Simulated scan of single mutants.
Amino acid sequence: MGLDDREYMRERYRARAKDNRWNDRAGGIEGRWFDPVNRGFDYQNGRFRGSRRPRGSILRWLPFALSLLLVAIPAYHSLKREGWLPDTRPARAFPESGSVTISPFVSPKSASARLTVITSNANAVVQLFEPDSGRHILSLYVRKNERTTTAVPPGTYRMKIIEGQRWHGPTEFFGSSTTYETITELMSFSRLEGNGIDLNRRPDGNLRTRPNWNAPAPL
């Protein structure tokens, strides 16, 4: 290496030394290698360290999301029940209030109790099922904004409600406006004491239901 080359290397070394300084407190060298633009890089693993979102921030929004869901589900069912969803298919005449579809396993002579139904602004099919076997007992048709009473066999049943606007028959029921719910408590009927429901939803009402996301079985 000639003199010119050695002088060149010395000048280059001095130029690099100006950009770095010793930090006695940190016990290391500060300079370009540790510039702010490089501080987000994980040199040991060869990747940038992304900022992790604290888990607490997600949990903080969870109660709000659940509350919103509890409001959205009833609102969605109300829109369907009142016919706000589009239904362009031709509708059929809904059966007269008090009409029933009875299971072949039930004798009409055994129907000595009374079921009363008051509907809201939607046609309704009120169904009774055996709570253990799930066997269908009876389906009662009630037109919107009407009240009807029919005879049912005494016993304790699981009640389910199908509601909607435009009737498409006992297979498709009310098409896109079909809502299908189950009364949470079992309904009991006796010869001396009947039972009934009022489908007009009110904030202070005692009708407790849960939505059924599967379609009702054809009658």
Score class of each variant (00 low, 15 high):
37 V>F: 07
165 Q>V: 15
134 G>A: 07
125 V>K: 01
79 L>E: 13
22 W>F: 10
194 G>W: 10
178 T>R: 04
136 H>P: 03
187 M>N: 03
13 Y>E: 12
192 L>A: 11
150 T>N: 01
13 Y>T: 04
106 V>T: 12
215 A>Q: 10
72 A>V: 05
42 D>C: 00
210 R>D: 13
180 Y>V: 05
204 D>Y: 08
170 P>A: 04
108 P>D: 09
70 L>W: 13
190 S>R: 04
32 R>S: 14
8 Y>D: 12
167 W>H: 04
183 I>E: 09
180 Y>H: 05
63 P>F: 03
156 T>G: 01
16 R>N: 14
17 A>G: 02
73 I>S: 05
149 T>N: 01
219 L>R: 13
1 M>K: 14
173 F>L: 07
76 Y>L: 11
171 T>F: 13
217 A>V: 11
73 I>G: 07
30 E>D: 08
131 P>R: 07
82 E>N: 10
163 E>P: 00
100 V>P: 00
98 G>Q: 05
46 G>S: 05
42 D>V: 09
74 P>T: 04
117 V>E: 07
37 V>M: 11
38 N>T: 01
181 E>F: 03
52 R>S: 15
56 G>M: 10
35 D>L: 03
199 L>R: 00
83 G>P: 05
63 P>S: 04
93 A>N: 07
83 G>Y: 08
157 Y>F: 00
86 P>A: 14
52 R>F: 12
84 W>K: 13
90 P>Y: 10
205 G>M: 06
76 Y>Q: 10
48 F>N: 04
46 G>F: 09
173 F>T: 09
177 S>R: 11
95 P>G: 03
201 R>C: 11
55 R>W: 12
